[in-house]
C-alpha cells in the first residue's frame, strides 16, 4: 500500500479552502498551517502563465526528516504516511531543517507537527479533510498500489511533476500539469 495525493493545478483556483478545512479538522492553532497555497506567475503582460498549487508534506519515500530524527519520533506508518509521535519528540528541530519543503512547524506545545494525510480519517476509509472539501475537486487521494484508485488513474493519464525531485526525497504528492 502506498498512499499518495495528486493536485490538479489546472483546476485548483487557489481558494485555500483546503487550508481552512485542515485547520478545523486537525486543530491546527491559529497562526500555524499544515498546508498552504502557492501561486507561480511567469511571463510578462499579456503573455502570462500561472500555476496554483495546494502544498503540504510530501510524505516522501526517502524522507530526510525521518532519517535525521534522533528519537524516532518521526516515523513512517502503513501506506508510507510520515508521522510525528508527539511524546517522543524532543523538539530539536532537526526534522524541520531537514525538510526541503518546509512542511513542518514547531507546534506551540513544543513538539513538531505537520500534515498527517489525515491518517485518522484515512484509516476509517474516508478522504483527508482537504480532499473532501476542495470545491474544484482538484485533490485526489488514494493508494498508488491500487490501479483503480483515483490517484493511480490520474497519475496514469496525466502529465505530472513533483517538487524538487533533485533533493532526492522521492515525494509522493504529484502535481498534474
Amino acid at each position: 500500500m502506498r498512499y499518495a495525493m495528486a493536485v490538479d493545478t489546472k483546476k485548483c483556483v487557489g481558494c485555500s479552502d483546503c487550508v481552512v478545512a485542515c485547520q478545523a479538522e486537525n486543530n491546527v492553532p491559529h497562526g500555524y498551517a499544515r498546508e498552504w497555497v502557492v501561486e507561480l506567475v511567469e511571463g510578462s503582460y499579456p503573455n502570462l502563465e500561472m500555476e496554483l498549487r495546494s502544498e503540504r508534506c510530501n510524505h516522501c519515500d526517502n524522507a530526510p526528516c525521518v532519517r535525521c530524527c534522533p528519537t524516532g519520533a518521526s516515523h513512517i506508518v502503513e501506506g508510507g504516511i510520515v508521522l510525528v509521535e508527539h511524546n517522543k519528540c524532543i523538539g530539536c528541530g532537526a526534522c524541520i531543517t531537514s525538510c526541503p519543503y518546509d512542511a513542518r512547524y514547531s507546534h506551540p506545545e513544543g513538539y513538531v507537527d505537520k500534515c498527517t494525510f489525515c491518517e485518522h480519517l484515512v484509516k476509517e476509509g474516508e478522504d483527508p479533510a482537504c480532499v473532501a472539501v476542495c470545491p474544484t475537486k482538484c485533490l485526489y487521494f488514494g493508494d498508488l498500489d491500487d490501479p483503480r484508485s483515483e490517484v493511480s488513474k490520474v497519475i496514469k493519464n496525466r502529465k505530472y511533476k513533483t517538487l524538487i525531485p533533485e533533493a532526492g526525497t522521492d515525494p509522493q504528492i504529484f502535481f498534474l500539469t
Binding site: 481558494c15 485555500s16 479552502d17 487550508v19 481552512v20 478545523a24 473532501a132 472539501v133 470545491p135 475537486k137
Partner: peptide, 10 residues
C-alpha cells in the same frame, strides 16, 4: 462542499 468562507463560518 463548502467554499473557504463557508468552511470558516464558525
Amino acid at each position: 462542499r463548502f467554499c473557504p468562507r463557508g468552511t470558516a463560518g464558525a
